[in-house]
Design a protein around this nucleic acid. Structure first.
Length: 820
RNA sequence: GCCCUGGUAACCCAAUGGUAGAGGUAGAGGACUUAAAAUCCUUUCAGUGUCGGUUCGAGUCCGACCCGGGGCACCA
């Protein structure tokens, strides 16, 4: 039977790609398509060079889901595009003395070719590039809608500045004091910049996570919660000697108000500057402020560094006990969190205690927690306890005291319950060329004037003649023809805003644009979006857990509030694939452990690489390529393919006449593969397919033989299962079995429940949980019958002789456990 | 420091609270071959990080600790 013709992995690639191009199995949204819709989305790539192993893994994962849903009868939209604005293009253009457009679109072409070779199930009619004016004009349009709602605004503020990239960064782009892109140490710079008011949505971003519970990885939800950092507490007003207005502080522990023995204001705050005026402490303050400014963020981030500060020669009055307390300035209080001023309760806050001990300030315990005295140990007591030294609060618990004092403060108009967030507004201005121009015109007479919507897009000028080298201001400012315009309101000479938007704006709504990527008069068609969105399954790296996903959620809520969307969360289910490592660390050229995708594909073939990436482990785990055996994958594909070659029954034969044992394996495998795919256990789905191949091999060689219809049925099931992971091999098998392409549209086989029933199962007989024997029983045996068999079993009765039975547990048909 | 994860064979990984092993890699032996490759068959290998608890029964649930990965971190 077996002529040992070798499986030609590269031959099938060349054979099927053009055929698929012709029949387009993955076109979505045809007008006459009655199948229910599903939306599978892979995070779109940034076009930096060719695709790498990480892309290969992510797109293989997305493909499993998309292709599975297609087999299950859905009309699946699985689009792809390019996140094509950004700094690398600009840096490359500077190096090459060319326009960023050239580098960008060349790379897109390279990546696109690789994706086609990789046989992703993308709908190629939906491609978008964020650097096309047809796309980014809608960034500008959305910006203008946000501007109208007061959600886009400008302010002077100290911002994160990367001296290497020569541009500002969002808080999210600063990692441990370093620029996430180039690792340069980030400094502060006071600039007038554009912001999106994401803080207005902090509560909803937090509370709407209820919708995502169980559907997004817990890790991502946790990261977002951390990032938003909501805290609940109270604001309390302190009178200041020699000042008309009181100073409000924010605290999460209003119960400890009686223990507030001094006040601290942020040294770099306006309040500090004001309080120090005419206090006699000006000189020392100025020196201290200088030393703080000289320190980098890295130094500031070291939590164990000693407290520093300066007494401002000013006093506040504790509102609950009238006590006069000193006001200090320090850098351990942040100017842009809360009110930039705190009441210090050294007994019950470690930072305040460290400061008090360093400066010799008083410490008063107001909550008895049963811990040792912080005065002696230097360790603040933060636990629950009983209030003391606290007037009306004495004897109360922490939570009761918080409730009572908050009410009292509110009644006396001295304070109120308050919330604060770690989240800051999203700074979107960038002083770079290759991004979306901000659609605002600055006019000396009219001020800030939005570009009329009818004049969008504000298209980027040619980079020709512009110096793109980072210089601290946007290169667009030098494009005289572009920047100088007439004011839309008064017609006088005015200037365009020369900054461009953070590229995270681009990716915050692209999933909506895919529903009609060429729409000329709207960002998206509301009706189409309602048909497809929200995205049913989003797939991408956990690196975007905060930035991109938080921004997209924010945009979705804003667009919902404007009335453009009927949902409030963009991505219903999220799958984070892990990274592809080599020898335990991330691949990089400099480390010398780079594995090139194209070389892997040349050597082992597309299907082997896809299969290897899927089979290596659970999707969310990192894969060490050193542990992976692509040649093993090829071996398996070869085995699968040979099954289809060995089939000797006629196409269209009656499966129901086939060998029952093999048919049962086939149907059980199909059920298990379905279940595994639906629960993201793609590696298990592959293992089950391997089992089916092994069983079929055995049936051919030493069982029912190749002419049995059950073998044909099994081969078909293998082809369809493999179509999720190894599309070329699957198509070839399908064709060998006498079917027309494409196997991708074959439809998931109907599982016959009768074939899932077992003839006999093995029941375990235990005594005290220890196995004594195994017996074969009918799957629908009753508890009583099984117990009877157990008692009659020789092993059991031997062990039971003379013993007293305390308890009998029967779980038919699987087990009997007798406790003696 | 706080929070989220994970720890099963030489390795990668499976196991609705019910036989620890499905699958693969590597290793060993064999069949085929002049030989090798390929193919096929057979096979070795852990008691689930540690300690305690719940349970008739724990890899699985609970608690503490150890180790790895990740997030937040002077946010009052």
């Amino acid at each position: 039977m077996a002529e040992h013709e070798a499986y030609d992995i590269h031959g099938v690639e060349a054979k099927w790609l053009p055929i698929w191009d012709r029949i387009e199995p993955f076109k979505s949204g045809r007008a006459d398509d009655a199948r229910p819709k599903r939306y599978v989305l892979d995070m779109f790539p940034y076009p930096s060079g060719d695709l790498h192993m990480g892309h290969a893994e992510a797109y293989a994962m997305g493909d499993v889901i998309a292709r599975y849903w297609i087999q299950k009868g859905y009309n699946v939209m699985h689009p792809i595009g390019w996140d094509s604005f950004g700094l690398p293009a600009e840096n490359a253009a500077i190096k090459r003395g060319s326009d960023p457009r050239e580098w960008t679109y060349e790379n897109i072409a390279v990546q696109k070719a690789s994706m086609r070779r990789y046989a992703c199930s993308f709908d190629w009619d939906r491609v978008l590039h964020t650097s096309d004016p047809e796309y980014y004009q809608w960034n500008q349009w959305i910006f203008l809608q946000m501007y109208k709602k007061g959600l886009a605004y400008r302010k002077d503020s100290p911002v994160n500045w990367c001296p290497d990239c020569q541009t500002v960064l969002a808080n999210e782009q600063v990692v441990a004091g370093l620029c996430e892109r180039c690792d340069a140490s980030v400094t502060k710079k006071k600039l007038n910049q554009w912001y999106f008011k994401i803080t207005d949505y902090a509560d909803r971003l937090l509370d709407d996570m209820d919708q995502l519970e169980g559907k997004w990885p817990e890790k991502v939800l946790q990261m977002q919660r951390n990032w938003i950092g909501r805290s609940i507490g109270a604001e309390v007003a302190f009178e200041i000697e020699g000042r008309d207005e009181p100073v409000t502080v924010y605290t999460t522990r209003p119960d400890t108000l009686h223990g507030a023995t001094f006040m601290v204001v942020a040294v770099d705050s306006l309040l500090a500057a004001e309080l120090v005026k005419a206090s006699g402490a000006e000189e020392g303050f100025a020196q201290y402020l200088e030393s703080v400014k000289a320190a980098t963020d890295i130094d500031r981030l070291a939590t164990d560094r000693p407290k520093s500060g300066i007494f401002l020669n000013r006093y506040a009055i504790n509102p609950v006990n009238g006590e006069k307390i000193q006001i200090w300035a320090s850098d351990y209080v942040l100017a842009d969190y809360g009110t930039g001023a705190i009441m210090a309760v050294p007994a019950h806050d470690q930072r305040d205690l460290d400061f008090a001990r360093a400066m010799g300030l008083p410490v008063r315990v107001v909550v008895e927690t049963g811990e040792e005295d912080p005065n002696e140990t230097g360790i603040a007591t933060i636990g629950d306890g009983t209030l003391t030294n606290s007037g009306s609060l004495n004897g109360l618990s922490k939570s009761a005291a918080i409730e009572k004092i908050t009410a009292e403060l509110e009644a006396k108009k001295l304070g109120k319950a308050a919330k604060n967030y770690r989240l800051r507004d999203w700074l979107i201005s960038r002083q770079r060329f290759w991004g979306t121009p901000i659609p605002i015109i600055h006019c000396d007479s009219c001020g800030e004037v939005p570009v009329p919507e009818s004049e969008l897009p504000v298209a980027l000028p040619s980079a020709q003649g512009l110096d793109l080298k980072p210089a601290g201001t946007s290169p667009l400012g030098a494009a005289a023809d572009w920047v100088n315009v007439a004011c839309p309101t008064c017609g006088k000479p005015a200037k365009r805003d020369a900054d461009t938007m953070d590229t995270f704006v681009d990716s915050s709504w692209y999933f909506l644009r895919y529903t009609n990527p060429t729409h000329a008069t709207q960002a998206f068609d509301k009706k189409l979006v309602e048909e497809w969105a929200p995205v049913d399954q989003y797939v991408g790296g956990v690196t975007h857990a905060i930035l991109h996903l938080l921004y997209s959620r924010f945009f979705t809520k804003v667009l919902h509030d404007i009335g453009l969307l009927n949902f409030t969360e963009p991505f219903t289910r999220l799958l984070n694939q892990g990274m592809v490592l080599m020898d335990g660390s991330a691949m990089s050229k400099s480390r010398g452990n780079l594995v090139r995708l194209s070389e892997q594909l040349d050597t082992h073939g597309v299907d082997s690489i896809r299969l290897s990436l899927i089979f290596a482990g659970p999707p969310e785990d990192d894969i060490d390529w050193a542990d992976v055996s692509p040649s093993g994958s090829l071996k398996f594909l070869n085995r699968a393919w040979r099954i289809s070659k060995d089939v000797e029954s006629a196409a269209g034969c009656d499966f129901s006449k086939g060998d029952l044992a093999l048919r049962k394996v086939t149907h059980k495998s199909l059920r298990d593969i379905s279940l595994a795919v639906e629960t993201y256990r793609f590696n298990v789905a592959v293992a089950r397919t391997m089992e089916l191949v092994n069983a079929t091999r055995k049936a051919i060689d030493s069982g029912c033989g190749p002419e049995d219809p059950a073998v044909r049925e099994a081969a078909g099931a293998i082809a369809i299962s493999l179509s999720l992971v190894a599309p070329f091999t699957a198509e070839e098998m399908w064709s060998v079995l006498g079917h027309e392409p494409s196997v991708a549209l074959a439809g998931w086989p109907v599982i016959d429940p009768v074939l899932l029933e077992e003839d006999a199962v093995v029941a375990i007989l235990q005594i005290n949980g220890k196995i004594k024997d195994r017996i074969e029983v009918s799957p629908d045996i009753s508890d009583a019958d099984l117990e009877k068999l157990a008692m009659e079993n020789p092993e059991m009765s031997a062990a039971l002789s003379g013993a007293t039975i305390l308890k009998t547990i029967v779980r038919a048909p699987k087990l009997v456990n007798i406790v003696i």
